[in-house]
Simulated assay, not measured.
Amino acid sequence: MIERQLRETLQKRWNSGKIIIVLGPRQVGKTTLLEDMCRAEGDYLFLNGDDFDTQAILENSGEMRLRQLIGSHQTVFIDEAQRVPNVGLLLKIIHDRIKGVRVVVSGSSALELSSSVNEPLTGRKWEHHLYPISWNELVGHTGYLAAKQQFELRLIYGMYPEVINSLGDEQAVLRQIASSYLYKDLLNYHGIRKPEMLSKLLVALALQVGSEVSYNELSNLLRIDRATIEQYIGLLEQAFVVFRLSPFSRNLRSEISSSRKVYFYDNGIRNAIIDNFNPLSLRNDTGALWENFLISERMKRNHYAEAHGKRYFWRTHAQQEIDYLEEYDGQLHAYEFKWNSKAKARFPRTFTEAYPDASTQVISPDNFEDFLT
């Protein structure tokens, strides 16, 4: 079992009296982590939200029915809770009326679960995210040398636990995840009117990683209206398939302020979508893979460290750009990503003069570990 960084944070809040919610993509190890932690406490009640019988038992259950179901268990774990009708009210009843019961919840659709629990569970929950394996977790599991030896493989096949543990069979595992699990919650969501467009949209987004995304261009390409494009990207984000970066704009009229970049939570899923697992030496998108890897890994690092800064990219209408910015308490940190360690990188004078207090750093394969630790 690969030790997860989130475990330490969860352990600190395990006996807080609040409901613990862990969100994240399917197949990243939420069930494995939470079951292991529940098991360490002794006997616990496991309820599978994907199971139709479980859904029927829990739907509209009142306090008496829940007391009978929970019995003497001190811990209740509801897995894939977004599939349970009225789960927010159900959790509120357990928290408020059945004292001494620890409640742990997992979910792979922030859209459905958050909308169900946010209001009923205000002040009653801790919410966290679990992502595919992080670089730091991989190093901790395999050792630094072994992790470095498979570094290029991780850019191609990504960081899903089953992929890492299926050496030589990565492509089949990724295709299975992409086809069987990636859209599972989205296709059950009533807002998806044209499910066939999801695959086409994802291919288009995968081919634009690292570039600004134009909703109008996607609308023309896929022949669906812009509002639907925006809605579907938002849904893909809520299902932990992609995430967006907004442009940073504060002082200059020349700064772009309305575009977006879209990244994938995992390189392997991105490559499965376009069906390209060629080695780096045969690819023309290595720079995009490098950028996606670094930004997704930095996201994991920041979340597990509870470093809640703001994230941006920067670009002007004159095509001057910086790959990635973070802002903490008004202090800017600017990063350029270069796959070629010898390539020269200069931060635009327009940026450095407008933001003279910003720190700048070039991230390459020679120093990326510092960026991710």
Rank of each mutant, 00 (worst) to 15 (best):
N60D: 14
V163P: 08
K310N: 02
E152W: 00
V362N: 00
Y131K: 00
S106T: 15
P247D: 01
S364L: 04
L47Y: 06
N278R: 11
L280E: 06
H128G: 00
R250D: 01
N48V: 11
T350E: 12
Y160N: 10
S108E: 09
R315M: 04
V28H: 12
H128M: 07
I363P: 03
H129V: 10
N340S: 13
Y181H: 14
G158F: 10
I2S: 06
N165Y: 11
T316H: 09
I94G: 04
G158L: 11
S254M: 09
F337N: 05
Q238C: 07
R283G: 03
Y44K: 03
Y335V: 02
N118T: 15
T350S: 14
Y44P: 01
A227C: 00
T32C: 02
E63P: 01
A318G: 00
A206Y: 02
I57P: 02
E59G: 02
A206H: 01
L113C: 08
E306V: 09
E321L: 04
A318I: 00
Y324N: 02
L182H: 13
P348C: 05
W126G: 00
L69G: 05
E326T: 07
T31K: 12
Q361H: 12
R193Y: 12
P132I: 05
G62Q: 13
I224M: 15
Q208P: 06
K261G: 01
L280M: 07
L113V: 08
I273P: 11
A204P: 07
R226I: 15
E8L: 13
W314E: 04
T122N: 04
A206C: 03
R39Q: 11
L222R: 11
G210A: 05
R270F: 05
Q68P: 00
M299N: 09
R349E: 05
E3H: 13
L325T: 09
Q171E: 15
F248E: 03
G29C: 08
A40C: 01
T316V: 09
V76Y: 03
R193A: 04
W14I: 04
H95T: 04
F52V: 12
L207V: 07
W314A: 02
S211Q: 13
V101R: 07
L33A: 05
L280W: 02
C38W: 03
N340L: 06
V203S: 03
Q238N: 14
G268N: 13
I363M: 10
S296I: 08
W339A: 09
S108M: 04
S254K: 14
L34I: 15
I98R: 09
P247H: 07
S108T: 10
Q55R: 15
R223G: 08
G143H: 12
H333P: 02
K200C: 07
P195W: 14
Q238V: 00
L235I: 09
H303I: 09
G100Q: 11
S259N: 12
S211N: 12
I133S: 12
L111E: 15
M159S: 15
A307P: 00
N278Y: 10
L235A: 10
Q319I: 03
E170P: 07
Y324W: 08
L23T: 07
V28Y: 13
L10Q: 08
A110P: 11
N48R: 14
S61V: 01
